[in-house]
Amino acid sequence: MNNGILRNMRPTFFYAFLGLVFMFAAPNVLQLFTIINLTTAIALAVLALSLALIWGYGGILCFGQVAFFGLGAYAYTIAAINFGDTTPAILVAVMITAAFAAALGYFIFFGRVSDVYLGVITLTVTLIFFSLIRRTSGPEYKIGKALLGGFNGVSSPPLNLPWDRSSFLFPEHVFYVAMAALILCYLFVGWLVHTRFGRVCVAIRENELRAELLGYDSRLYKLGIFTIGAGIAAIGGVLFCNGVGRITPDVFSLYNAALTIIWVIVGGRGTLIGPVGATFALFYLTSALGGQSLLNNNLVLGVILIVFVLLVPKGVAPTVTDWVMARRKKAPKRVRRRARPQTERME
């Protein structure tokens, strides 16, 4: 069984290896400014990965994946300020977010809420966070030692060494941590989708009634994948705080909620590397566009979304795979055609 999973994970290992090469090469080649920027992109890629899991494999179109990302970021920041140590803060962030998602998911899945309403509910939750946290600017809004800071947000303490809370990591080290976290999350998710759990989730995505008629409690599987996805989004949130150095209610904005969906659509549902790659690509596209004033950022993203929905509906990664497969299928035919005259001659 394990051999089977490892064999199926070959492409996953390949991309993880590429990531590893990038992780050690980038700081030697790129400037510090770029490296710091990259950390933010990596955080967003982890967020995309989490939606790629629950939407692409679980079939759950969660419109509020940023809610878990932002919740993780806030929980990390507040916990880190209070503890004076970031290592337990990471754990707290992931656990609070997963617990919140489990509670929300319990009502959604055990209440058998339909897919459309699931989207509406998750988006609403996100926007509630957005407007609630924006209103927390006064000095009375604090959790322990941490002021919430309203729309200005809170500045996040940088990561410290797990064994020494007084030595903080430099930005280039944070980059290593972020990249390692992305690779580990990617390997974990890549493994998960090949386990029994992951494959049953895909079956439920394909036909929920059929899965139930085979004896699987679809509610439990959906709740499970939803919660795991939220935990991974929280890890992205923690990295995001470290890339940007601050967390503001803007993470919960409609713009960011939509952007997450766009990454997965462009990269391709049902793959993991697609959405991760698309996040980097679009992150650099928007930063490049940020430097000019000719084209509006949102307009460009809107156009990209429309182009993909209409022309590349499966997304980049599945389309490329299909194309390669089609070419591979053709290849043996060519060989056969060439071989045939020879055999005739031999006869």
Binding site: V202, R205, N207, R210, A211, L213
Partner: peptide
């Protein structure tokens, strides 16, 4: 087995 075929189309 239901009257309307219920299978996993993508698998």
């Amino acid at each position: 087995k239901t009257q309307v075929p219920n299978v996993f189309d993508g698998l």
